[in-house]
């Protein structure tokens, strides 16, 4: 049971990430591979905040959000110049740059050695030490992000984003400042992935740069491709499938090397088959 609770924590963290990524990719059609970078910045904000600065968990979430908003604002301005596959490639580049900084800025991030001993959240004297309590808190945040997603999706803001996704030029002609809309949703999504990063850092209690590489951004992208673009339920289903897949493979009893490669082969095959037969994903509404 304890094992399933642990998996569920991971699942809820990746649901937050998938939901926030789907705001950018699904709602507004901008294929960002930079999500792992904001996830990482959020995680580092919590790690550094809780260990060296002595801040509380929730304060560090705010700190991570502030940093992510600032960075995403600048990065979003650069990215707003691009579309489609160019957007994807440039965002991948940004992810490599952030990873490089996390690895090399040793004074702040402790470089390759990583940061250990990250604490658990404390609310009014109650510390979330037990995994089930931690899971409850994580699910609460996931639910809030889910609600936010649905709310944006139905709001007039969301409708403009979807119009922009289908035809940016037309939306622009109709008098909407498309760059502004693209920028706002990108910043929001970055802030929300920072929250997921904070939960990850606190859950694992140790982080290092290798967790936040481009590979992770591609993994997150795979989650929402499998689950479904522009679908809140799809994001969660995608996270559930891709987080449990390696665990299911653990129990199949294949040799480890083969199991690990088989998992990669399944990821790859999922991507290819989805692209051939159902480019909008299982629950998706938008096709690239």
């Amino acid at each position: 049971m304890e094992y399933l609770i642990n998996l569920a924590i991971l699942f809820s963290i990746y649901s937050m990430l998938a939901l926030s990524l789907n705001m950018v990719i699904g709602m507004s059609g901008l294929v960002s591979l930079a999500q792992a970078a904001f996830y990482g910045i959020g995680a580092y904000a919590t790690a550094i905040g809780m260990t060296s600065l002595g801040l509380g968990f929730f304060t560090t979430i705010l700190l991570g959000i502030v940093i992510n908003v600032a960075i995403a604002f600048v990065v979003g301005k650069i990215l707003a110049r691009f579309q489609y596959d160019y957007y994807a490639i440039v965002s991948a580049g940004l992810s490599v740059i952030v990873f490089s900084i996390l690895l090399n800025w040793k004074k702040v991030t402790n470089g390759a050695l990583g940061i250990y001993g990250i604490g658990k959240p404390v609310v009014a004297g109650y510390a979330f030490y037990s995994n089930s309590a931690f899971l409850g808190l994580a699910l609460l945040f996931t639910a809030a992000i889910f609600a936010l997603y649905v709310w944006i999706d139905r709001s007039s803001f969301g409708r403009v984003l979807k119009a922009l996704r289908e035809d940016e030029r037309l939306t622009h002609v109709m008098g909407y400042k498309t760059k502004y809309y693209k920028s706002v949703i990108f910043v929001l999504s970055a802030a929300l992935s920072g929250i997921a990063g904070a939960f990850f850092a606190s859950y694992i209690a140790f982080i290092d740069p290798t967790t936040f590489q481009l590979k992770e951004g591609i993994f997150l992208f795979t989650i929402i491709i499998v689950g479904g673009l522009s679908s809140a339920v799809g994001s969660i289903v995608g996270a559930l499938i891709l987080i449990s897949l390696p665990e299911v493979l653990r129990f199949v009893g294949l040799p480890y090397e083969i199991a690990a490669q088989l998992q990669q082969i399944i990821y790859g095959a999922l991507l290819v088959l989805m692209m051939i037969f159902k480019p909008q994903g299982f629950f998706g509404k938008f096709r690239m």
């Binding site: 294929v31 489609y84 596959d85 994807a88 591609i218 992208f221 491709i225 090397e257 083969i258 490669q261 088989l262 990669q264 082969i265 990821y267 790859g268 095959a269 999922l270 991507l271 290819v272 088959l273 989805m274 692209m275 051939i276 480019p279 096709r287 690239m288």
Partner: peptide, 28 residues
């Protein structure tokens, strides 16, 4: 895929999938 109207974006994602499979097969 292109004949069935796949956009460059869709093709890119598919090729990413092909690459992932390829890397694992070489590993094996």
């Amino acid at each position: 895929m292109r004949k069935h109207g796949a956009s460059p974006m869709v093709l890119m994602v598919a090729s990413l999938g092909v690459y992932t499979i390829f890397e694992s097969v070489i590993h094996l």
